[in-house]
């Protein structure tokens, strides 16, 4: 016998995940536009590996395959990993990243809903620590690099690591705009000199700034559709803006301006697609603000003073750790109880 309520009208988990995937489309489209179709190969590899690992783990854990494979969560994890690694990476890079994310960061913690850390970011962290060299070969935007690969050549390189005769990898790839900024600042250049380099566009890296804008657009859709809470992206981007703004005002020759931070690296995809993972972020409104501020602060610190080019992944993982504490601290007042009545 069923019990009340007898009616439900939920937006189911799979439809939520699907909308998040839709929201990635503008960013991915712009990625292809500026950097060529290699990213699609990368996504396909990561997604395949993610789904295969998901199926394997479900089988090992004796869980039903169909409902969990069709909830699109593994698909989303695969996409996010592919989007955070260089598109021209050898085929095993997205595969290892996805497999680790799904097997270890997700299923060993209990599967969907039980993982304390964002699986995609764990996958990324494992790759950047284990394979730092392969993780630096970012494609130059079209028109910036000295040579361009066709799709066939890209595929060939991804699977065999062999370039067409006479081509050098360095001529095709570059380090990320954030990485370049850090390296050149170390070499004594000023921010404005660095930003005159050909890889930079109006706000940040040429091409990549537009991809970031695409993710921001998708993120705004998620906000409007109420798929993600507004507190997380607002607190994160606000903190990043405020901190970089203050430093930039004090010393514009050594600190990049706020919009540069916003449209570089994983700031936008992080703000709207990674920090907002409900499983690994706080459940209370105030908690989300604290979480976003913390992630913004850590991202800025890692970018400015840390050893890694971008800080979003590590900031996310570090803040993921604080979620239980934040949730406990920020329990809201309930109906008919004063604040001081609480625990």
């Amino acid at each position: 016998m069923l019990s009340s309520p007898f009616i439900t009208r939920p937006l189911s988990v799979d439809r939520i995940m699907l909308r998040v995937l839709y929201a990635l489309v503008p960013g991915i489209a712009l990625y292809v536009w500026y950097f060529g179709p290699a990213i699609l190969v990368s996504i396909a590899l990561a997604v395949t590996a993610a789904l295969a690992t998901e199926a394997l783990m479900l089988k090992l854990r004796d869980r039903p395959l169909r409902p969990f494979l069709s909830d699109y969560s593994a698909l989303l994890t695969g996409c996010l990993i592919a989007l955070s690694i260089p598109p021209l990476a050898p085929w095993w890079l997205p595969v290892i990243g996805s497999a680790f994310a799904i097997a270890v960061a997700k299923h060993l913690y209990g599967g969907l809903g039980s993982n304390p850390f964002n699986p995609a970011m764990i996958g990324y962290a494992v790759l950047i620590i284990s394979f730092p060299h392969e993780m630096t070969h970012w494609l130059s935007p079209q028109g910036v690099g000295q040579s361009v690969l066709s799709l066939g050549q890209q595929l060939h390189y991804i699977f065999t690591s062999a370039l067409p005769a006479g081509m050098q990898l360095d001529a095709l790839t570059m380090s990320t705009p954030l990485d370049t900024l850090k390296t050149q600042l170390h070499l004594g250049m000023t921010v404005s000199d660095i930003r005159d380099l050909p890889i930079y566009g109006r706000l940040a890296g040429k091409g990549s700034e537009m991809v970031a804008a695409g993710f921001a657009l998708g993120g705004l859709y998620l906000l409007v559709a109420r798929i993600i809470p507004w507190q997380l992206p607002l607190a994160f981007l606000g903190t990043l803006f405020a901190l970089s703004g203050v430093f930039n005002l004090i010393d514009p020759t050594h600190y990049a301006p706020p919009l540069f931070h916003w449209f570089s690296g994983a700031a936008m995809i992080g703000a709207f697609f990674i920090l907002t993972d409900p499983i690994t972020s706080p459940t209370t409104a105030r908690g989300r603000i604290i979480f976003g501020i913390g992630a913004g602060l850590l991202t800025f610190l890692i970018r400015t003073y840390g050893g890694f080019p971008d800080g979003v992944a590590f900031a996310t993982i570090l803040m993921n750790m604080c979620v239980p504490l934040i949730d406990t601290w920020t329990q809201p007042r309930i109906f008919g109880k004063k604040k001081e009545d609480k625990r």
Binding site: L11, P67, F68, D71, G113, P229, P278, I279, T283
Partner: peptide, 8 residues
């Protein structure tokens, strides 16, 4: 399905 802590 498992709870995804979406807080709806």
């Amino acid at each position: 399905m498992p709870c995804i802590r979406c807080t709806r």
